[in-house]
Design a protein around this nucleic acid. Structure first.
Lengths: 250, 250
DNA sequence: GTTAATTAGTGTCTTTTAGTCACTAAACTG
DNA sequence: CAGTTTAGTGACTAAAAGACACTAATTAAC
């Protein structure tokens, strides 16, 4: 926007308009700022995270979280930047996204003092499989084994934070459901929560509280595999906002 | 750090060391980044937030949250920046600080696309009263009435977010206790939680769970005002990390 | 002093909600 | 058609918060 060259030297009591006209922050000694996304899904009983291969230095060729820089012209809000980056890699916009945390320090990027605003998002495997299967620089990686890989920057640490937050949400919300297809069964949702929490849950408790809070909508359809047919539900609008007053046992 | 002038033009397969040497991001078209702090305390049954008067344009003369820019030489981590800014205004470092959220958009600062990483912190009134009373550009403001003031930038919104997060913490932790003096009584802590939640709590429930989780340490001292003497406690180390499995009723 | 008002701290019962686990029955498998 | 798997429910137990009365220690009032 306003990028006139400096002219006002005495900045003691100049008019604000004059000040703004002479303002140019871009060449100050400021840190880098980027945005990253930990995008999770659940497929074949495995929680997966989307990794992309870096096309540029530094850490060129290494895998890491999708992310990039704010485009001051394309993006109106921070979230626009992340959604744009996710869409570039998956072809779609995830149904759930939240800001995780910002990480900033002098040494997280070898170039310079650097800050990343990290988001966490969820999407169904099916909705982005078509697009991802066509590209070589984006892939779903098993969350259980991702810790063994050498990732770019501090992305290993960002993933650990994102996983822990998602694990907490599994204890007091139905947010993880956004990692499932639009229609899913109670046992499917429970398996996902169990994978996140790392231990089995009581199906009676799990169902009871979700039904009592009316978070799911019966689609009227059923699906059967090895047992009796299971009812297919979808998440009700605003279910992501609801939090139980009490956590499930850890 | 590395700020040599550009020399490598073809960046296709140059060595990383060459790339780093030619790297200079500072003049790209990037947003501004600042850090702000919502610092709360509790004094005479009132929750207060620290406001400071802006010394520079834009919004010069308006009141807002203490904050500023990362100093790449002074600060190693983001939190160093906030703590430095808080210490400049209060003379002390708060015993509790957490990152709240980052806010970034094209229009939150009239100069340019701008991002702030907002922190929330707690401190006792006593520990910074001496310093604050000597300066004219910093003041505690009643949190109940702060919404009626015209504040700089989007600080009114940052405060609303910080207040809501602190209210939640009052339901499942003893974190608010860091807004009290080192030694405090159970009724004092309860009053603070009640002020945050906005409704009275059952003293039996309040005490029971905190005692069961062993979050407070008996100082051996007592204090009496209008009734029987009350035991003075202090927060145990790591009490801020503890969260109850169940919220108090809202 | 003696009495009243205030309020810290406790005893104990009720309510709510999660944990446990057996049971029914609907589908598929062979 | 018998056996296995598993979706969904009934019903009891356990844990922890809500409710509220009660005791007693201190200050205030006179």
């Amino acid at each position: 926007m306003l990028r006139a060259s400096p002219k006002a030297q005495a900045m003691n009591d100049i008019e604000e308009s004059d000040y703004l006209a002479s303002y140019d922050l871009r060449c100050y000694d400021i840190p880098m700022v980027s945005v990253d996304a930990a995008l999770f899904t659940f497929h074949e009983d495995v929680i997966k995270i989307l990794l992309v291969q870096r096309q540029n230095h530094p850490d060129k060729g290494k895998w890491g979280l999708p992310g990039g820089f704010v485009d001051k012209h394309k993006d109106r809000h921070l979230e626009d930047t992340v959604l744009r980056k996710i869409q570039e890699k998956t072809g779609v916009v995830p149904p759930y996204i939240e800001q995780l945390q910002s990480f900033g320090s002098a040494n997280r990027d070898k170039r310079d003092w650097s800050i990343t605003i990290c988001y966490s998002a969820l999407i169904s495997y099916q909705s982005c499989a078509p697009h991802i299967s066509t590209v070589a620089d984006a892939a779903w990686v098993n969350l259980k084994t991702v810790a063994r890989r050498a990732l770019a920057f501090d992305h290993q640490s960002l993933i650990a934070h994102a996983r822990e937050r998602l694990r907490q949400k599994a204890l007091y919300s139905v947010v993880p459901g956004y990692a499932l297809p639009e229609k899913f069964t109670f046992p499917e949702l429970q398996k996902l929560h169990e994978a996140l929490i790392g231990k089995p849950l009581q199906k009676r408790s799990f169902r009871r509280r979700i039904e009592a809070a009316n978070l799911l909508e019966d689609t009227g359809e059923k699906r059967s595999e090895k047992g009796p047919p299971a009812i297919l539900y979808r998440l009700r609008k605003n279910s992501a906002q609801f939090t139980f007053n009490r956590n499930l046992e850890e």
